[in-house]
Design a binder for these strands. Structure first.
Length: 435
RNA sequence: GGAGGGAUGACAGAGCGGACGAAUGUACCGGUCUUGAAAACCGGCGUGGGCUUGCCCACCGUGGGUUCAAAUCCCACUCCCUCCGCCA
């Protein structure tokens, strides 16, 4: 949630910044008008309530002094005020509700580093990386045997079975098999092991309550993108960010314990409702995938470092895996609702000849913390909202795709990099199963 | 799924219709004492909101209700603990 106080104090600054994200100025003016109305109604209601409280006190006193007639008169007028107060209170609640529901739809104020743009076409490439780039190697040219899409490799080697997945759960639910399944497990373990000295590893629930989804900003805006289990009031998490951000919800932390850095691998569920029919081959876009998330609660001063650290770790993984990747600074049109600044990492997938998003490293400023009410006490006793930062390291389905394509050999086998060998039982070559 | 007990400030824990935003202890902050620290003593110490910055309002798991007045009474729900059942 954006800072209403800031909107009041410097409306033009906030309006201008949000206009970059396509929020009409009129919407903000509407919010400001509701805010004024809300406060004036609130004052009236509170005045009435103060009066009722005072009268009630007098009733008590009168009763104690056995002044029963006076008590009765006071009770009478307090009762009348009570009727008025009920009406006043309803008006306050109605306006508060209207104000709040509008406020919840407002995205975060973008950082100055965020470039203007309407969609992903306008994201700004920050840099590219490929093996031996430092040694002056040119951007890789991929061999013919690497130009095979992963869904074909998957079928050929018996490691990815989209048809059986669809039989079980519908299309876009992948089924990994044999060495394919093992590779997925290896990638997750490889990443978690690399974070373990600095990030506490968690294994959170895969479902979350509506309030939890509100905290991260996924609700109310993205309800259509998520799976809901209505009977139990639960939502399937679209990312580990959801449980991680809420772990200290409603708490006041000590400045000394910040930054709090957490990591978790979770399944991520996405309906992909808005993108029906697009990029549906293989693992390009799936309803369920595993992802390791890195997360930090921190002070505003620590936020830049926390963001850089997560980005660095995501990059180090891609470098260790030897994948070609690039960094994009997301433009205003492509930025997630809650984010103030996001760097995406995309791997190059030679078989499908495309860049695939595998990580999003975002700084949320205090937007999520305000919704989730996560604050901290500074050393001089003041209470401030924390900042939240998170990023994937990494989303494995697309990494898996890029891996099998990048490492496909001329003989059709897939020879995976040695760093994964310990996680693959020492055997890092995937061959077709003799059947 | 069934039966019972519980949920109060950072923590522990009292309060169970009227001056209770809440005793007390611990923790924390400031001071006295001390070479320093500890102990002792003194003082302070919840969060959010509104405005006329001194006051007012809200909050005692959540939501409703009763009442002139609710942490306190009633109803529903959620979560935690104990026991029984079922179960990977």
């Amino acid at each position: 949630m954006i800072n209403l106080g800031q909107l009041r104090r410097e409306p033009d600054v906030v309006k201008a910044a949000l206009a970059r994200r396509g929020v009409p100025t009129e919407t903000m003016d509407e919010i400001l008008a509701l805010d004024v109305e809300h406060r004036s109604l609130l004052q009236e209601d509170e005045r009435l309530r103060a009066e009722i409280k005072e009268l009630s006190r007098q009733v008590g006193d009168a009763r104690r002094n056995k002044e029963l007639d006076a008590a009765e008169t006071l009770t009478q007028s307090s009762r009348e005020l009570g009727d008025k107060e009920r009406v006043a209170n309803e008006a306050v609640e109605r306006v508060a509700e209207a104000l709040n529901s509008r406020l919840l739809m407002i995205p975060n104020v973008p950082d100055d580093r965020v470039p203007d743009g309407v969609d992903e076409e306008d994201n700004v490439e920050v840099r590219r990386w490929w093996v031996d780039m430092d040694q002056g190697a040119p951007f890789p040219t991929f061999a013919e045997h690497q130009r095979v899409p992963h869904w074909e490799i998957g079928t050929e080697l018996g490691i990815l079975d989209m048809e059986s997945g669809a039989k079980m759960a519908g299309s876009m639910f992948p089924l990994y098999r044999g060495a394919g399944s093992r590779l997925l497990r290896a990638l997750g373990a490889f990443s978690l092991d690399r974070q373990r000295d600095d990030y506490e590893e968690l294994r959170p629930p895969s479902f979350a309550l509506t309030e939890t989804m509100m905290a991260t900003g996924h609700l109310p805006k993205s309800a259509d993108d998520m799976y809901a289990i209505e009977r139990d009031g639960l939502w399937a998490i679209p990312t580990g960010e959801v449980p991680l951000t809420s772990i200290r919800r409603g708490e006041i932390l000590n400045e000394a314990e910040l930054p709090i850095r957490l990591t978790a691998q979770t399944a991520c569920f996405r309906r992909e409702a808005g993108s029906a029919g697009k990029d549906t081959r293989g693992l390009l876009r799936v309803h369920e995938f595993d992802k390791v998330e890195l997360f930090a609660y921190c002070t505003p001063e620590q936020a830049d470092d926390a963001h850089a650290d997560i980005l660095r770790r995501a990059e180090e993984l891609l470098q260790a895996l030897g994948l070609t990747y690039r960094l994009l600074n997301l433009c205003t049109g492509d930025l997630g609702t809650a984010s103030a600044y996001t760097i995406d990492l995309e791997v190059f997938s030679p078989g499908v000849d495309r860049w695939l998003e595998v990580s999003s490293v975002s700084w949320f400023r205090d937007y999520q913390a305000r919704r989730a009410s996560v604050r901290y006490r500074t050393s001089d006793g003041k209470i401030e909202l924390v900042h939240t930062v998170n990023g994937s390291a990494l989303g494995w389905s697309r990494v898996w795709a890029a891996m099998v394509e990048t490492y496909r050999q001329a003989d059709g086998t897939v020879r995976l990099p040695d760093v994964l060998a310990p996680y693959l039982g020492g055997d890092s070559t995937i061959r077709a199963r003799a059947s």
